[in-house]
Design a protein around this nucleic acid. Structure first.
Lengths: 199, 199
DNA sequence: TATCGTCTTAGACGTATGACTAATACGCTT
DNA sequence: AAGCGTATTAGTCATACGTCTAAGACGATA
């Protein structure tokens, strides 16, 4: 019925263009006209397909997130020690910085601070990530026999989620002081747990 | 010479208005005209006094930060156990959410992501906070005799700074899952250290 | 009281914006 | 090949924007 090749192409072109512009210039400087020009498409199509810029932005984030959540789940599903999974996850932090995903995510959060209608969409992305992290941490707690009396799983998950988010934010603001030291410290702590479990 | 009462008043009115608007609507929806209206001032004064909106925004953040850094230093200077200082610091997190400071800070970070000229100003604020936290953590490490072999002070500072930032960001995006549990876990861990030192 | 520099105002300029519309091109189906 | 529904286009509309300017009000100084 709908969804002809042409329609899909124009939609994708707009989403791709929005993704590029979010990464390079941020939401505040994206107008329908500029976006359409970047996409090589008539500026009327933005409203024709998406109804509003906000809807389009939300779809950019969701599309991008979908890819990475899939990658993350596949990575954590591997049958290797948690230490290795953790290291891979931390290397993804750098990848996702370079790919621009983190920028897209931050831009949409910033947009949602002032647009209640977008809040739920952004919260949902946060929840997806949290779910992935929770499974991973749950596995680590069991594998490494971590004591959860004073530090329950939910607290660990929250700590991991927030310090990751904090690092992402700091990096985009131009600060990375102590990140290397922090990650090194966590890594060596995990090493002791890993060695303990192997012996 | 300059700095007559009137000049100071108009400047302050603009800074106050910008602060309110940053908190309520975000930087993207603040035009010189809207700001001037909110301040009850002619719209030409924005450029007359500040030259640009960016400069004005930066001054809003710096003025606000100055107050809170002073408060924070005074608080940490008290002669009480670190545990109590920590609890006060965590209660400030809620205060600063309600006062709008965190919103102002986040808005300026978001603005700076796409305006390299603002970067240094925002980084400087981050550095001021980091300096305060570093002193506090340094004191805690000595008072509670914390082992810094695997977790050096710089790593601890980075952890505290990033997870705080992450919590602030999550709260503004409408997420607070696990925050209570995380803070409770840290608190009870600090309690064990505090008790250990008193005996 | 006259003067002078600063503060403040109103308004004009060209440009860009989001929202919308009417006309046209395209590509299926029949 | 004709017809029809969707995709696409160009263009209009009032509005708001940042920037700038020229004029006027104010208040301290002399």
């Amino acid at each position: 019925m709908s969804d002809t090749a042409a329609k899909i192409e124009a939609r994708a072109a707009l989403l791709d263009a929005a993704e590029r512009l979010l990464i390079s210039t941020g939401y505040a400087e994206i107008s329908t006209r500029r976006l359409a020009e970047e996409a090589g498409v008539n500026h009327g199509l933005v409203h024709y397909y998406f109804g509003s810029m906000d809807e389009l932005f939300a779809q950019v984030l969701e599309r991008f997130t979908e890819r990475l959540i899939a990658r993350q789940r596949a990575m954590y599903a591997r049958d290797v020690p948690f230490l290795e999974k953790w290291r891979t996850a931390m290397s993804y932090l750098d990848e996702d910085l370079e790919s621009g995903y983190q920028k897209v995510w931050l831009e949409l959060q910033a947009l949602a601070w002032n647009k209640p209608a977008l809040r739920d969409r952004v919260v949902h992305v946060d929840e997806e990530w949290r779910a992935v992290v929770t499974e991973a941490i749950q596995g680590a707690v069991e594998a490494y026999d971590i004591d959860t009396d004073t530090f329950p799983v939910e607290a660990i998950v929250s700590l991991v989620a927030t310090f990751n988010l904090g690092m992402i934010l700091e990096r985009h603001s131009g600060v990375s002081t102590g990140h290397r030291e922090l990650l090194a410290a966590i890594d060596s702590w995990l090493q002791t747990l890993d060695v303990g479990v192997r012996s």
